[in-house]
Design a binder for these strands. Structure first.
Lengths: 143, 143
DNA sequence: CTAGGTGCTGGACCGTGGTCTAGGTCAACG
DNA sequence: CGTTGACCTAGACCACGGTCCAGCACCTAG
């Protein structure tokens, strides 16, 4: 109908998902509105579907399991009346992302530290190996 | 030998990994030094092993695949001479984490936005549903 | 008419990262 | 002595998220 309607291939291109994955997502109920089909049974995605899928991609990228996205989609599909539950779900994910961020930046510190020490090590021309498994009997201030 | 030696159960406790996982990691070569065994074949972890494993946990938490950790462990096991490669590997991961952080905070923005709009929506008592699949013919400034 | 491109379905297959089971050893406790 | 609890190995099993294949339907262009 709309001139913004897209085929599965086009949606694949612009979401970065494969057509296989798009069909998988549909089977798993990740779509918040049923995909229309054209006369010969081919999927027709609206601009809104594309939007939704783009959000799904972000949810996935932030570690939301397919099952959860599916649940959210279901709530949206069911329409008004369950906003509280949607909010709860989103808040959970919000918390989840925040935790991940904290963890990740912690890991980044570690890696930064190691990188720095290897850079030094290499620049200085191989003095004692950083990160070696013979830390000498003595205590090690690595913390 | 050292009084800081640990059994697998103890290591499990303090790393948060299960004993199963610890054995798995060992089989996959994630350990940078061979685990010692006591008289009856039981694993004996040194404080250094624990340290290493704690790092492994962080690597995993930041999305490093077991195979990569294994590679790094191998390099460390092989001793001096391959520091450049270790550094490269670490730098790759550093980049990887940085990308993840960017992505994640992007996702967080999205979720924050949604959460905010649902909060409003609920506070205001169910006016038009945010995130509904009937966005009206008109354009939507959601970007 | 035929070939190429795109799409459809259902189901098989895959890599990753765990998790658990069976069957056994060992040490300590009561 | 027997039981309990921690550990051992090898290998099965699992969930997840994709990815791919066979076999078929369309449509359009040459």
């Amino acid at each position: 109908m709309s001139d913004r309607d897209l085929s599965i291939g086009q949606v694949a291109q612009r979401t970065g998902l494969s057509v296989h994955t798009l069909r998988l997502y549909e089977r798993k109920g990740l779509l918040a509105s049923e995909v229309r089909r054209d006369g010969s049974g081919r999927r027709v995605y609206s601009a809104w579907d594309l939007q939704w899928l783009a959000n799904c991609v972000k949810f996935r990228a932030s570690g939301m399991p397919l099952a959860t996205i599916s649940r959210l989609a279901q709530l949206v599909r069911e329409g008004s009346g369950n906003e509280a539950e949607r909010l709860e779900l989103l808040r959970d994910h919000q918390r989840h992302i925040t935790e991940q961020l904290a963890q990740l930046s912690d890991c980044l510190d570690l890696v930064n530290g190691k990188v720095a020490s290897y850079e030094e090590h290499l620049a200085a021309g191989a003095t004692g190996d950083p990160w070696q498994r013979h830390p000498q009997p003595a205590a090690q201030a690595e913390r």
